[in-house]
Design a binder for these strands. Structure first.
Lengths: 154, 154
DNA sequence: ACCAATCAGTACTATAATGGTCCCATATGA
DNA sequence: TCATATGGGACCATTATAGTACTGATTGGT
């Protein structure tokens, strides 16, 4: 199973919580309670999300976090990328590792892998935070033709 | 980073190797050498792939493995699903875990997650094994017969 | 000026997942 | 019958993950 960590899952919930009220400052303890995780965990995630630029933070007595952009301008790939690193499915896609591939005569496999990673990336990038807080009966218009981005362009 | 295990990566390489010569029986030691992994690891993967129905196996002196279907009829989601379990990104998608979601007023998040998982699934399902062994810049065309030029180099 | 609330950064530990190997049983063909 | 293969687990070392704790910096109110 292609997996994303529990923490990233929490992170999505945190972002959706903030998206419900994007103008207000939300302190960590409020977020922790709303999402249902312990305070240290919420702290950690909020810090990471803020450092990556998805959240703005304000310190002090009435401080807290809020989205740095509108929910329409934040996608799943932003959040997942912030918490798990760049999206990619194998080491081939992000780092260079020409160890095994050479044997298999012209590592077309690697280039195709990158293309698959791109497709997954596109799928995640096409879902915005604002869509995540809508009832799922609303149509989501991403990936109408998934194969299009996979096929090699001439 | 959305990740796929190293073993699954090897599994893809193994499948592509077998796809180069889909009619012949390939013993494990040959596959191991061609792909560049140690024999025990290749054994493990081949066994798993065979048990999941992607490969046929023949025991005995001239035994080995071969694809149970044509490379056009095997997709990435088949291979990844065989080696990593069903494709999904969070526990919401495959198992029921209504613990945290209830708090977040009508877990639309979960249903939307399932949609995202579906998109990733579709992306992986749209790439066939036969496409993986083609050079990525070439337009896709079907391989009706195994071509000599695509055989692994000695 | 002081204090309390809040975020920033980092270090740490226990648990779980992964990667990799080995053993023994079973089937097959020469 | 024997060498060659696969079938199915069990096993351990290493790594990654989840979760927590601690110290320091900043802000706002009194």
């Amino acid at each position: 199973m292609i997996r994303i960590g529990k923490l990233t899952d929490y992170g999505i919930l945190i972002m959706t919580h903030l998206a419900h009220d994007p103008e207000r400052l939300h302190p960590a303890h409020e977020v922790a309670q709303a999402v249902g995780v312990n305070l240290p965990t919420a702290n950690k995630l909020l810090k990471t999300l803020a450092r990556s630029g998805l959240l703005e933070s304000h310190r002090g007595t009435k401080g807290g976090y809020l989205l740095s952009r509108s929910p329409e301008a934040i996608t799943m790939v932003d959040i997942i990328g912030a918490l798990e690193g760049p999206v990619g499915l194998t080491d081939c896609g992000t780092a260079e590792q020409p160890g095994n591939c050479q044997r298999e005569g012209s590592c077309s496999v690697r280039a195709n892998w990158q293309r698959i990673s791109q497709a997954v990336h596109d799928a995640l990038a096409s879902v915005t935070l604002s869509e995540m807080i809508l009832p799922p009966s609303q149509p989501i218009h991403f990936m109408t033709r998934p194969s299009a981005s996979l096929r090699p362009q001439p």
